[in-house]
Design a protein around this nucleic acid. Structure first.
Lengths: 136, 136
DNA sequence: ATTAAATGCCACTTGCATGTAGTATTTTAC
DNA sequence: GTAAAATACTACATGCAAGTGGCATTTAAT
C-alpha cells in the first residue's frame, strides 16, 4: 500500500497529456502545466517512453506523445512499471512471505480492501480521467 | 495512499501484543517474536506509549502492556498517530489543495476506493485481528 | 548496597527516493 | 552548415525515513 511520489508525478503527467491525447508535449511545456521539477520530469518522461506508454521525438520541435491508445492505458500499469506490483499488492505488514499458508494477522481483514484498490486501478484508464478536474 | 514502514512495524507489534492482551511484553521478547530491529522497536514502543495505545513500566521486570481496551483501538488511529491522516486521505496525485472546488483529475475516480480504505481501517480494531494469522 | 534487566533520551549513521547539473546527441529552422 | 531547441545519458547532491549506539534512569532480585 504505497504509491511513490514518482508514480504520483507520472499520474500528473499522463493525466495532463491525456487532455489532448494527440498533442505533442515538450518537457518544458508540461513543467509549466503541472507541478513537477523540470529536470526530474524530463527523466521521468524518458522512463515513461521506455515503459512504452509514450514515445519520444528528439530534436528541435520534438517532445512526447502517447504511444498507445489511452483508453487502453490503465493506472495499474503505470504503478507497476514504476513501483512494482508489491507496492500495492504486497503484505500490509510488510512481510515478504505472507500467503494463504502462512498469513499475517491482518491478511484476511485487508484482502477485500486491497482487491478494491487493485480493481479500481485496473479498470481505470487514462481515457476515463481525460476530462475530469476541469470544472471550476 | 501511503503506509510507512514504521506504521507497518506498529501493526506488527500491536498485533502481536493483542494475542495476549493482558500480558506485559518486554522489547526484547517482542523483538524475538516479530521481525523489527530491536533498537528501532524500542523507540517505537516508547512512541506508542506516548500516543496512549500502550503503557510502559520501567525498571527490571518492566515492559509494555495495553493502556486501553483493544476492542477500541482502531487501525486508523495508529496510522494517524504515526503518519498523519493525509498519508491515507490526501490527494492521490499529491496535490496539497485538492478539494471539491478545485479537484485533481483523479479525485472522483479515487474517492470511493479511498473511502473503502478508510472505512476498513476505521472499523477494524486490534481485537478483530487478535486470533488471525495462527492457522498453520 | 550492588547488580541486573528493563525503559528513556539524544545524537549519529545509513540507505534510498528525490532532485540537480553538465554534457552529449538529435533534429529543425534559417 | 551553423545555431537553436529539444531529448538522452550519467554522475552527483539533498532530504528524510530507517536504523544504530552510548549512556542515563528506573526498579527488582539478591
Amino acid at each position: 500500500m504505497n504509491l511513490s511520489k514518482t508514480s504520483k508525478y507520472a499520474f500528473r503527467v499522463l493525466g495532463q497529456m491525456a487532455k489532448n491525447e494527440k498533442e505533442l508535449y515538450s518537457a518544458q511545456q508540461l513543467h509549466k502545466e503541472i507541478d513537477v521539477p523540470e529536470r526530474y520530469l524530463r527523466r521521468l518522461l524518458t522512463d515513461l517512453s521506455k515503459y512504452g506508454f509514450i514515445k519520444s521525438i528528439q530534436g528541435r520541435q520534438g517532445g512526447f506523445a502517447f504511444a498507445r491508445d489511452i483508453s487502453k492505458i490503465f493506472l495499474i500499469e503505470i504503478v507497476v512499471a514504476i513501483d512494482g506490483l508489491d507496492s500495492i499488492d504486497g503484505c500490509i505488514l510488510g512481510y515478504d512471505s505472507c500467503a494463504f499458508d502462512h498469513a499475517c494477522p491482518m491478511h484476511n481483514i485487508w484482502e477485500e480492501t486491497k482487491r478494491k484498490v487493485i480493481e479500481t486501478l485496473t479498470k481505470t484508464s487514462l481515457k476515463d480521467i481525460q476530462n475530469a478536474g476541469l470544472k471550476l
